[in-house]
Design a binder for these strands. Sequence first.
RNA 1: GCGAGAGUGGCGGAAUUGGCAGACGCCCUGGAUUUAGGAUCCAGUGGGGGAAACCUCGUGCGGGUUCGAGUCCCGCCUCUCGCACCA
Length: 836
Amino acid sequence: MSAEQHYPFTEIEAKWQARWRESRSMACDITDATDKFYCLMMFPYPSGDLHVGHGRNYIIGDVLARYLRMEGRNVLAPMGWDAFGLPAENAAIKNNVHPADWTTRNIARMKRQFSRWGIEYDWQREVTSCEPEYYRWTQWLFLQLFDAGLAVRKQADVNWCPSCKTVLANEQVVNGRCERCDSVVEDRSLMQWFFRITEYADRLLGDLDQLDHWPERVKTMQRNWIGRSAGARIDFELVSTGEKVPVFTTRPDTLWGCTYMVLAVEHPLVESIIARSASGGADLRAFVSRVKRLGREARGDAGLEKEGIATGEEVVNPVNGRRIPLWLANYVVMDYGTGAVMAVPAHDQRDFEFAKRYNLPIEEVVAPPPGVQGTLPGAAWQDAGVLVRSGPFDGQKSDEALPKVIDWLREHEAGDHTVSFRLRDWLISRQRYWGAPIPIIYCPDCGTVPVPEKDLPVRLPTLVDFRPVGDGRSPLATSGEFLHTSCPKCAGPAERDTDTMDTFVDSSWYFLRYVSPHDSERPFDPAVANRWLPVDQYIGGVEHAILHLMYARFITKVLHDRGWIAFKEPFARLFTQGMITKDGAKMSKNKGNVVPPDVLIERFGADTERVYTLFIGPPEKDAEWNDRAVEGAYKFLNRTWRLVHEHLDAVRAYAANPAAITGVEMGSVERGLRRKTHSCVQKMRRDLAEQLHFNTAISALMELVNDCGEALRAAEGAMSPGMRLAIGEALHHLILMLSPMAPHVCEELWEKVGRPGGILAARFPQADLSALTVDSVTLVVQVNGKIRGRLDMPAGAAEAEVKRQALALPAVEQQLGGTAPRKVFVVPDKLVNIVA
RNA sequence: GCGAGAGUGGCGGAAUUGGCAGACGCCCUGGAUUUAGGAUCCAGUGGGGGAAACCUCGUGCGGGUUCGAGUCCCGCCUCUCGCACCA
């Protein structure tokens, strides 16, 4: 490749990146919220080098921010670092450096990387979650929840990752394995802090309906995760002791068909049942420990064979006083409902299989419609039907009787409406070093005492040995200086909580900090936050569909309830970009399929990578990286560069006086080009702002470049004044429209055109509809839906006129073989359909 | 099983939302230029038929609505993702 055959991207990119840096091109005037647009990208873990797959997220955000700037919006585009947490810590341990140093180094590297991509942020607003200036307010947030009774400490069986040596939130356990290291998760019983997100379950679910601009997929995932089931609590009575045993069911209408009850092995009654057992309970005890040993992974498997054991005890069905046997089984879990299930084998498949295996009675109480095979021989009838053998409800439709059964239970004080959620409380304690310390002090006299706000931050000590201890204690417990303190209440000797917070706490509120990143008095300025939030456009990976996005919504609602902010949802619009794969797999160092951007940028320039990344496919879908196709983007930029240089005078002439174009005489070629230019502008607005369809936006610009070439060829080298201006306009608009996507090359071209000052000072072109009118259009004539010819018609004629002319045209009659057309449709634009 | 989304050339993907299917790009073929290669430019590029103008079939499968369906309706099939002994 010789120098004159491609544009000098290396120089150009260095030049403009330096200028943007110096001019702080993305600095936002936060005091002015008119026409504001908060454009936020999920902040990254500073965990190492970025590859082209990461680039997609940030390039999309950068293009949007640049475009909106050109539209005159006041854009807030900040960036920060999710710098606490396991990945940073693990890498630091592996490389034998302190997490803080490792993190700082990576942040510097990644900032350089952003800059090389031409991605600009308002770096004045940078936040880093591992700095005391930030985590001070994460601790403040903890105190807010503590004060609201939403942060509670309890002994709990928790998910313990033996490899990471820490507790995991439910959300971080996937199929019984640690989300990060894939180790099988164990159960441990520890004292842990929880955020009571379940208090907000109903609101987190209900408010999803207001999030019109969130992907349906993400909302569905959140709905599933919250897992709301409406039903009833029904109190059965244990015959031996008279204790109440509540069950949860979504089908109280089938209550008369209940023939036994099943408890989870973790159920609190199990111990006393074993103690009372006539046989000494050895068999029961063996069953319980065997099921417990199975572990979470095996028990979560729906294919697990249903096993159980009779306790020898009985419970009473409140609705008919009937005594039924009480069993323990491996298919009932303590996590959901009450850990006790009323078994209706005739109308629940699991109960059915269990009853078959252990020869328990199966009694049909919901009759299927006539002619339909109901329960038996192979499966339970789980649909609605007519109730039979159901006392006062006989003959009623089961779905209609359902609420009435609950009413009956309420009247007889044997149950009530209730709602069960799959969502668990958010466990936030971590026995790890690299996180925000939990601001709590334990005093022998005063108990659990929150650290007073004025004493924040509780600083993370610089430990020599920060590695996990592994016995359930945090590394912080090994620092006497950190551990021993005095009680804020009684000043007596006391100890600090030595756990740190889950990093999802850090990221649950960072979008608020950007509005006042240097405020040392408050986490954020509520007045400014209320003007700038919710975030107008949030962009990130779908892998955060549940964890981060649910926690951020929860924290927003808590802060709303505490009067800090006026809004209830943090992110008005959410866009989840697809992954970029290589060789069919996610890029990772292990697989050796990472495409590093540096080589690409050296060879083709950052603009080429940006354009290719945007052009690769619909941004919400996964896409396969294709090294060869990158060259298509490169060719396009080179062609643009050459074309503008060949017609610099024309572009300058247009730019000097854009209004002149309307007064110039033009032939059909020139007018056709103008029409294409302006319909391209229209398409661009829709594609960029409304739909984020960058792939079609770029193909439209490619078409415009092709159209320019075609128009020039059609003019056969004769540059009439009209042609000059039409080309000038097309290229002028092209530069501007392309600039959000390929900012370096467009800034350079823009400067050459004679309008120094930078793209960000230029406006995105407006479509001029008057430029779209033409003298005549070719109408496609369909007869009975088949294309039968083409007719030239005057353009701009009223529909009726076009119709009249179409009817009168001999060509139409000829097409119809002499018969008069029965009906003529004129479709907007240029299609006529005639019905014979 | 429940929920969401998708199925269009050799490939990635378009289709102004019911109006000329395959835009744009990649691959491939031919031509121009070049000592050559590269780069660039031009032309072609869904299947079948034809020298050609054109004809014909064609958007996972089967029906339907309509002058007209990739798009709407009914019934299937396949794939991707999420959830799942959730009572």
